[in-house]
Each structure stands twice: as structure tokens, then as C-alpha cells.
Simulated assay, not measured.
Amino acid sequence: MALPARAFDTSARAAFILDQTTNTILLAKDADTPIPPASMSKLMTLYVAFEALRDGRLTMDERLPVSTHAMNYGGSTMFLDTTDKVRVEDLLQGIIVLSGNDACAVIAEALSPDGTEAGFARYMTQRAQQLGMTNSTFANSNGWPADGHRMSVRDLALLANHIITDFPEYYKFFSEQRFEFDGRAPQNVHNRNPLLSMGIGADGLKTGHTQEAGYGLVGSAKQGDRRVIFVLSGMDSTRTRAEEARSVVNWAFRQFGEAQIAKAGTEIARADVWMGAQPSVGLTVAQDQVALLPVLDAEKVAAEVVYNGPLQAPIKAGDQVAQLILKPEGLPEKSLPLVAMSDVPTGGFGVRLRTASTKLVKQLRDGPEGGF
């Protein structure tokens, strides 16, 4: 027997790894527990800002004022003050590259339904729920430690996927390794994402750290036509975070590969047909199917064809009548629709007579209850 792909053993308290190209979950560890996301939750602020740019409620060159509330944030900042009016593009880069808590608050107050960061946090929570992030609630715009400010690692991966998919025109900012704003903070000009300089295809997204949350990272990397999104949380140091993230990328791309598992027009199985002009019909896929499989086990994947049979005639070519269930070792099952390869009209009088006779003989043999 071929060996399954080696399971990834991570020291992160919670982890989620997704092959975005095939929508295949490679690892889920404590994936749905709401945890403190620290600065990784800034991704939600960015997503809402990107929506506002798309809708015309913000423009890149628009200048936003800085409130006393925004200026007073500690931690990672752009060192903004109340005399500033900052371009939206600079604020976005300040959030992505410099992890500016103050920049988040400026964006939040500009887009908040009531002009406050708290109001923006409530809106973020509502919008997250609409996007399917059911384990996310926000108390602020930047991940500053607060009661009730929580996200699960699965939600963070879903959010990263939305950013990459919905706003490719802004995703380029996440790969920037350096951003200098007005010469104010020479000690805070570098992107904290350790993967960007490793040459392994990494191009995003956001690190996070608080004492309660530990060290975390929402990452993404692309090699060839494949993209992997992953979230790690609860690590004990920046070094561990960098090592774990690099290991995730290497494991995801080296232990799994795409393989063609079914070709359109090729018969995969046959299904029995009831009262048809033919007793069975061939099954195939409507289009070529590719799946992500463990590289050591790609040619020995368990599979079964499932349908409610016998199928009732008439049947038209292309009708979806069955499912092909793939069961790759160490990965979730994958279900593919199967369609009829040809028309099967209802049988004539002779077919119906033979079918009725066969059923009568079976009943006489087995008894009215199927046996004695």
C-alpha cells in the first residue's frame, strides 16, 4: 500500500490550511474556536475599506482626519496626530505593512455608521456574519486586546480568501516589504511577514501578536497555478512563527499535487435502468475533473459510485443521475456529479411485460414479505 501524505504536526494552538485552487482543506486544528486574533483582525477592516473603494464611498487620494482617539492608540502605529490629514492609500499601506493601529481607527471612524470605532466594529461583526464568518465578533478595528474581540482560524482563512478573490487589484499591497510614511517612524518601516523574503511564493497577508493571543500569521503563497492559504495562531515566538509558516508552505506544495481523476466522455460505471429500452446506462463526468491528492497515494484513491437505483426511464444524455465519491487518504471526501452518457427512452410493451413478469416471479419466489 502507498503511504498517505505525512500529517503536518504544528506547534500552533490553532491552525487551518486551505488549498485555494481546489478548495481542499489540508489541515484543521481547533479551527472553529473563537480566539483573540490580535492584528490579524485588521484584515476585516481592510476588507470593509476595499468594499468602500469599490463602491465609491472612499477614494485612494482622499485625505482623512485623525481624531484624538485614533492618535492615542499605542502598539504598532504610523505616529499620526490630530494635525494630519492622511491619504487613504497611505493609511491602507500603513495598516498592511506597518500594522498601524492608529491608521485602522482613522479608516474605522470614516466608514462607521455613527462615526465611532465602536460603531464600525459592530458593522464589521455584521458584515463578517454575512460573509460566512460565524465565529467572529469585533470590539475594535485593529485587534487591540478587548473582551469579545474574537475570530476563529477558519474565519480568518475565509476572510483571506475573500480578499484575494474579491479584490485582486489591492492584494498587491500585501507583498510590499517596506513602507516609509513621512519619515516619522524609521524603526517601523518593515513588513513583519517573515515569508515575503524567503522566495517560496509567499505574497501575504498579516501577522499578529498580543500576550494573550501569542504569535500568529495569516499567510498565502502561490507556486505555479496553485495557491495555498493558511492561518497559524498561538505560537511562542517570532522565530517559531517563521519556521512553522515556512514548513506549512513546503508541506502543502510538496505533499499534495493536482491529478486528473476523470475525463469527460469516458465511462466510469454503469447504472441499472428500470423500464428502459436499455437495461443500463453509462455514467461519466460532464467535464474533465482534477482533484488535489497526496503525491504518494495519487493513483490508489478509494472511490465509489452512489445513486438511487435502478434509475427510472426515460433518461436524457447529460442528466445528473449519480455521484462519484473520492476518499483520498488524509483528506476530506470529494463528491463529483455523474451524468448519463446517452438517452434511455422508456421501453416498449415487450420490455414492460418482461419487467412485470420478472417482478412477479421474484414475488412468488420470495413471498409477499420478501421471504418466510
Rank of each mutant, 00 (worst) to 15 (best):
A2Y: 02
L3I: 08
P4M: 07
S11R: 15
D19L: 07
T21C: 09
K29R: 15
T33F: 02
P37L: 13
K42F: 07
K42E: 11
V48Y: 00
V48P: 00
G56D: 05
L58E: 02
M60Y: 02
M60A: 14
S67G: 09
T68Q: 14
H69K: 13
H69G: 00
M71F: 04
D81V: 01
T83I: 04
D84R: 05
D90A: 11
L92I: 15
G94T: 06
I95W: 00
D102P: 10
C104D: 05
E109C: 03
E109P: 12
L111R: 02
E117N: 04
F120M: 06
M124T: 05
T125G: 07
T125E: 02
Q130C: 03
N135A: 12
F138G: 00
N140A: 06
N140G: 01
W144Y: 15
G148P: 08
R150G: 00
D155S: 08
L159H: 00
A160I: 01
T165I: 04
D166T: 07
F173A: 10
S175K: 14
Q187R: 07
N191Y: 09
S197N: 11
I200A: 04
G201P: 03
T210C: 12
T210I: 10
Q211S: 12
L217W: 00
Q223C: 00
R226H: 07
R226F: 01
V231F: 01
R241E: 07
A242E: 10
A245M: 02
N250H: 13
F253E: 09
R254K: 13
F256G: 03
I261G: 07
A264W: 03
W274A: 10
M275S: 11
P279C: 06
L283A: 07
Q287V: 09
Q287W: 00
A291N: 06
V306A: 09
L311Q: 03
A313I: 12
P314Q: 08
L331Y: 08
E333N: 14
V339D: 05
V339F: 02
V344T: 05
G348C: 05
T355R: 14
A356L: 13
A356H: 11
S357K: 14
T358G: 14
R365P: 00
G367W: 03
